Amino acid sequence: MSSWDNLLEGKVALVTGASRGIGRADALALAKAGADVVVTDILLESDEKSEAEAERFGPMAQVMQSTNVMYANKTEKQITDMGRRSMAIKMDVTNKEQVENVVQRVIDQFGKIDILINNAGTLDHVSQLGYQNDEFWERDLRVNLTGAFHCTKAVWPYMKAQKRGSIINMSSVAGTLGGFGQASYATTKGGLLSFTKSMALEGARYNINVNAIVPGIIDTEAFNLGNPEMNERMINRTAFKRPGKPEDIANAITFLVSDKANYITGVELNVSGGIELFTF
């Protein structure tokens, strides 16, 4: 048994965008550390309308749906097989009413929410400014930034009432460094950092910790759909000269939402392999 096995014993976590990639790794890591975990995503294997949902959200969602890269229900089963409580719920973070209903359902069935991981995001709008798609710009704002706002606002009253809570916002090095051809993505991820600090200030009086993770190049399904030559260039910018794993992000999150990090709030933690360093 590792020292992490019971780190989150008795806690209830809600993870958005948890059907694959970093979100799925987060959900599994939190469960391994002892938490009960609610897995949410717009794409569930059991949802007969997943094709229509994917079409609403653009190319990346469509590719994941059409190639069956959807593991929300599988993740739920893996978590329950660990002896933890879990459920997979379809949730669109851009839909305020739906988010509020899901949070209420979690409160009703699990009794509380201790941890929120705002992981849901889009990463398929890559064009220089003159070719940025206006509709995708608005979509990215709704999903990446307003989605985190909706989820945070929905859990906030419950965390305030119980006088404890941990929230993680998933930013990106594009939000700290900028990203060529990533105006919408970088803007939303940078906005999440300011949102994190503001919520950390508001949450401190209620013992709510709010922090941001700043991933670098992570070896996910989405990353592997990218241009191989461009991917290699980005990997070579890291100090380690290799991509990170989703578990690297999940391990950092597990620490930040645990009682071992109860005096840490408002930080933006780079889990990036040193891509922000001056490497040559």
Score class of each variant (00 low, 15 high):
6 N>P: 01
8 L>H: 04
9 E>A: 13
12 V>D: 01
13 A>P: 04
15 V>M: 04
34 G>R: 13
36 D>E: 05
37 V>D: 00
51 E>F: 11
56 R>H: 07
62 Q>F: 07
65 Q>D: 00
84 R>A: 05
84 R>T: 01
93 V>Y: 01
95 N>S: 02
95 N>Q: 01
103 V>P: 02
109 Q>P: 04
110 F>R: 07
117 I>V: 10
122 T>I: 09
125 H>T: 13
128 Q>V: 15
129 L>R: 09
139 R>M: 12
141 L>N: 12
142 R>H: 02
152 T>C: 05
154 A>S: 09
156 W>E: 09
162 Q>V: 00
165 G>A: 06
166 S>N: 10
166 S>R: 13
173 V>H: 03
186 A>W: 03
190 G>M: 04
193 L>M: 13
195 F>D: 07
201 L>S: 15
204 A>E: 12
204 A>G: 15
206 Y>L: 04
207 N>K: 08
207 N>M: 11
215 P>W: 07
217 I>W: 15
220 T>H: 15
223 F>K: 12
227 N>G: 06
232 E>W: 04
232 E>Y: 04
235 I>F: 05
238 T>S: 15
245 K>R: 15
245 K>Q: 15
246 P>T: 09
250 A>W: 05
252 A>F: 06
257 V>K: 07
260 K>I: 00
263 Y>N: 12
264 I>Y: 10
266 G>D: 11
267 V>N: 04
270 N>R: 11
270 N>G: 09
275 I>R: 09
278 F>Q: 08
